[in-house]
């Protein structure tokens, strides 16, 4: 419980060593702060823990019994005891890495991460998808889907099908006019599976059925700088409204404009 607005510090045991930790903190974060290595793919601090990648499985010790639990779903409390590197944890983690290597055979991130834990080969049949919009790198962790709906409030992409046939894309694999082109999905993707490119006039979300979002051109230099829809969304949330003169400027022109104004250099 917070005392005077400050978090209470409690004692926890990790791999037989005692540490002080903040009560209520997500254990995965505590471990990261303490430099105790736990691999993970689906945790993103802007979102609630989701527990889908299963790589951060550790053993929680309660009354002498252990239970496999994902570190991202454990909340720190006094007396918490965790084992992160038992033969059991390593055995299952290695199988999970093998499953990932088979599911996303083109992902360098997965290969490097697995290799770091000693897994360089998979005994499972590799998934080969021709013309995969996610380049054979998607591990279906769901971060892109969640950031799109929960943070951006857009819901332009979602899971399609279920079980082993699950994929992520726009509804009916069609160009989705709801997409604001923010590319937050690509930003949070742990395996860099999502591709987009900026052309002269548009941002093209290659992975999302070629969804095309027009770019806004800078009112000063006339160069495209951000997706129009995203800019409108941002501007609608600004309060108070910013100076009309710089509303539609690219960051560079805006900087120049403000600097000149501050330095009282005539604006041309």
């Amino acid at each position: 419980m917070p005392v005077n607005g400050r978090k209470r510090m409690v004692t926890i045991t990790i791999n037989k060593n005692q540490y002080l930790a903040e009560e209520g903190e997500i254990f995965l974060l505590t471990a990261m702060r303490l430099k105790i290595d736990i691999p993970h793919l689906c945790y993103e601090k802007a979102l609630d823990p989701y527990g889908s990648c299963r790589l951060c499985m550790v053993e929680v010790v309660t009354c002498g019994k252990t239970e496999m639990t994902p570190a991202c779903t454990i909340k720190v409390h006094n007396g918490l005891e965790i084992l992160t590197d038992t033969p059991e944890v390593i055995k299952h983690r290695n199988i999970l890495f093998e499953l990932y290597l088979a599911e996303a055979p083109k992902s360098e991130v997965i290969k490097e991460m697995a290799a770091k834990y000693g897994v360089t080969k998979t005994r499972f049949l590799k998934k080969i998808v021709h013309d995969d919009p996610l380049l054979g790198k998607c591990i279906l962790c769901g971060l892109c889907v969640r950031v799109c709906s929960e943070i951006m409030g857009t819901c332009a992409i979602n899971f399609i099908n279920r079980g082993p046939f699950t994929v992520v894309n726009t509804p009916f694999y069609e160009h989705n006019p709801d997409c604001a082109g923010c590319a937050a999905c690509a930003r949070v993707c742990p395996t860099n599976a999502i591709v987009f490119e900026d052309t002269e006039k548009d941002r093209v979300m290659r992975s999302w059925s070629g969804t095309t979002v027009p770019m806004m051109t800078c009112s000063s230099c006339n160069k495209p700088f951000a997706p129009e829809k995203l800019m409108h969304e941002i501007q609608s949330r600004l309060d108070p409204q910013i100076n009309e003169d710089i509303r539609n400027m690219c960051p560079e022109c805006r900087r120049r404009y403000i600097s000149r104004r501050e330095m009282k250099i005539p604006i041309t």
Partner: peptide
């Protein structure tokens, strides 16, 4: 079970598929 898996977590989605194979 593989056909009914929701596809959220990797052991169930991928693991059951490989068990079936």
């Amino acid at each position: 079970a593989s056909g009914e898996s929701c596809g959220k977590c990797v052991p169930c989605r991928e693991g059951l598929k490989h068990m079936l194979l």
